[in-house]
Design a protein around this nucleic acid. Structure first.
Length: 219
DNA sequence: TGCCAGGCCCTCTTTAGGGCCTT
């Protein structure tokens, strides 16, 4: 039985910045995070027939030859959708990955009703002292492990999952929130940064019966 | 071979401009 704490962290490698201009996915990775631990992984290159520009290959290491031998994108996306089920999703800069998730599932003829939360927005609220909130820089800033080659989908998805687990940990430690699930994360990322402290106090007071002492503002 | 966006946030703001973040 799926836990309420289960969250799917996704990362795409693609041929460009947006599906609106014809960019397609070249690789997908999804990790399932439960109680701060990665409990399952899905990863695959995918073949769409769209050319990969050389600067993308330089960035990701993914070549046109590699995707030519990969499974068809429709097959991969249907498998990915089965893997995710109805679990809510998180990505680092979710506005990017959510567009490719919807577009690739549409190509595959699958509905994509999943809500997304964004670790960039959460990181900006939780760690305003960080100079940069790019995935590599925020992972280094927080002393989290590097999962593998940056700009490959599984490594980036795992690093985003480590970041999310750290955010959930800090929400527990700083604010006394026992189980910071997807709904609270979505609320937090929408909360204006100057009001984060007050918003979290209100969430704790109204929705978190485990809360036993006033949290320290800021930090 | 290669196309190059858009939502969010900050501030010298809000009738705007520019940087960040993703490939």
């Amino acid at each position: 039985m799926p836990s309420n704490d289960l969250i799917a962290v996704i990362d795409f490698e693609t041929t460009g910045m947006t599906p609106a201009q014809g960019a397609r996915a070249t690789e997908i990775a999804i990790v399932l995070l439960e109680n701060g631990q990665i409990v399952d992984r899905f990863q695959s290159l995918m073949r769409t027939g769209v050319y990969i520009p050389s600067f993308i290959t330089q960035l990701t290491g993914i070549t046109n030859a590699m995707v030519a031998e990969a499974p068809d994108a429709g097959f991969v996306m249907r498998e990915a959708a089965r893997f995710v089920g109805n679990v809510p999703m998180v990505a680092h800069n979710a506005s990017f990955d959510s567009k490719f998730w919807s577009a690739e599932l549409q190509h595959a003829g699958v509905a994509a009703p999943h809500p997304f939360a964004c670790t960039v927005l959460l990181s900006r609220r939780m760690y305003p002292e960080a100079r940069s909130h790019s995935l590599g820089n925020i992972v280094d800033h927080l002393g989290l492990p590097r999962a593998g080659r940056a700009h490959r989908a599984l490594a980036d998805a795992e690093m985003a999952a480590f970041l999310l687990a750290r955010i959930q940990h800090d929400l527990r430690e700083r604010w006394g929130i026992a189980q910071p699930g997807h709904e609270l994360l979505s609320g937090l990322q929408r909360c204006a940064r100057p009001a984060v402290g007050k918003w979290l106090v209100r969430q704790v007071q109204e929705n978190q019966p485990c809360f036993s002492k006033p949290p320290a503002l800021g930090g």
